[in-house]
C-alpha cells in the first residue's frame, strides 16, 4: 500500500479518536486543509507518522487543547475586510436599531479581534446598550485570549487603517488602553460580549439573534457540515435576521440558497429567507 493511503488511514483514525474520546467532530471538515494542519502538527510534535499522535490524544488530557489550537485556524484581525464592516455599519446596524434589544452572534470568533471591532462599531453608532454579543469558538485558548482582549501593539497601525476604511468616525485609540507593547480593549466593550464554547458541528440553537457573523469558518467544512451549520444559523435568526459570511465563501448548495437571500453580495451579507418548510 502506498504511503499516501496509509497516511489517509492514519488521519481518519486520528479524527475518529478525537471524536470518540473528546467529542470534537472534525470528520466533516474540508479534507485538504485539515490534512495539512494535521501534518503540520505531526511535524511540530517531531513524530514521523500521524498515528503516533493518537496515543497521546487518547491518554493525555492536556493534549486536547493543543490539538484544538492547531486544528482550528485563528487568523483574524480587527475590521478584517474593511468594506464588509463598512457595509455592516451602513446597511445592517441601522436595521438593528429598530429593535428594542438585539443579539449578535459571532460564530468562530478566534481571538476576538472581529468581535471587538463589531463592538466598537456599535458604540459609535450608539447601539451598544441595546446589544448583546455572543462570541463562540471551539478553541478554549483562543476564547480565553479573546476574553482578555489583549493584543500586541505592532498590529495597531494596520488596525487603525482598517478602522478608518470601515467608516470609523474617530480614532481607534479611543477604544483601548496601551501598555508595555500591548493594548487592551476597554472594559465597557468587553463586558458586552459573552465568550462561550460552542461547537458548530454538534451544538444547537442557544439564542435568538438578529445578526450572525461567521467569517471564514464554513470554508473549512464539507458540504454536509455546511448545510447543518447554515440550518442552525437559519433557526437561530429572527425573522429577516442577517447573516454575514467571509468574503471568499459562498452558499454552495441549492437548499442553503433557499434559506438566505443576498443583501450585499460583495460583503457576503444575507438575510433570512421566507419561512421554513
Amino acid at each position: 500500500m502506498e504511503p499516501a493511503k496509509i497516511q489517509d488511514i492514519e488521519i481518519g483514525l486520528f479524527l475518529e479518536a478525537l471524536f470518540q474520546r473528546h467529542g470534537y467532530d472534525f470528520r466533516n471538515y474540508a479534507k485538504a486543509s485539515l490534512k495539512r494542519r494535521i501534518l503540520a502538527m505531526t511535524a511540530a510534535a517531531r513524530c514521523r507518522n500521524v498515528a503516533e499522535l493518537i496515543p497521546r490524544l487518547l491518554h493525555d488530557e492536556d493534549y486536547l487543547a493543543e490539538v484544538l489550537a492547531q486544528l482550528s485556524v485563528p487568523v483574524t484581525e480587527m475590521f478584517r475586510d474593511p468594506p464588509v464592516f463598512k457595509s455592516l455599519r451602513e446597511t445592517v446596524l441601522p436595521r438593528l436599531a429598530t429593535y428594542p434589544r438585539f443579539n449578535i452572534w459571532q460564530a468562530g470568533c478566534a481571538t476576538g479581534e472581529e468581535v471587538y471591532s463589531l463592538a466598537i462599531m456599535l458604540e459609535e453608532e450608539g447601539l451598544l446598550d441595546k446589544a448583546q454579543i455572543y462570541a463562540t469558538d471551539i478553541n478554549d485558548n483562543a476564547l480565553q485570549r479573546a476574553e482578555d482582549g489583549i493584543f500586541p501593539v505592532r498590529c495597531l497601525e494596520e488596525y487603525q487603517r482598517n478602522y478608518k476604511a470601515a467608516g470609523g468616525k474617530t480614532d481607534l485609540a479611543d477604544y483601548y488602553v496601551a501598555n508595555a507593547g500591548f493594548f487592551r480593549i476597554h472594559e465597557r466593550l468587553r463586558k458586552k460580549i459573552v465568550f462561550a464554547h460552542h461547537n458548530l458541528v454538534s451544538d444547537g440553537v442557544f439564542c435568538e439573534v438578529q445578526l450572525i457573523l461567521c467569517r471564514n469558518v464554513l470554508i473549512y467544512f464539507d458540504n454536509t457540515l455546511q448545510r447543518r451549520v447554515l440550518k442552525l444559523f437559519h433557526d437561530s435568526l429572527v425573522r429577516s435576521g442577517f447573516l454575514c459570511l467571509g468574503t471568499r465563501e459562498s452558499l454552495r448548495s441549492v437548499e442553503t440558497e433557499q434559506l438566505f437571500a443576498p443583501v450585499n453580495r460583495e460583503a457576503m451579507i444575507f438575510h433570512k429567507n421566507g419561512e421554513n418548510s
Binding site: H22, G23, Y24, H197, H198, N199, S202, G204, F206
Partner: peptide, 9 residues
C-alpha cells in the same frame, strides 16, 4: 437545558 451536545457536556 442546553444547545451544547458534546460528550462531556
Amino acid at each position: 437545558l442546553t444547545a451544547k451536545a458534546m460528550v462531556g457536556d
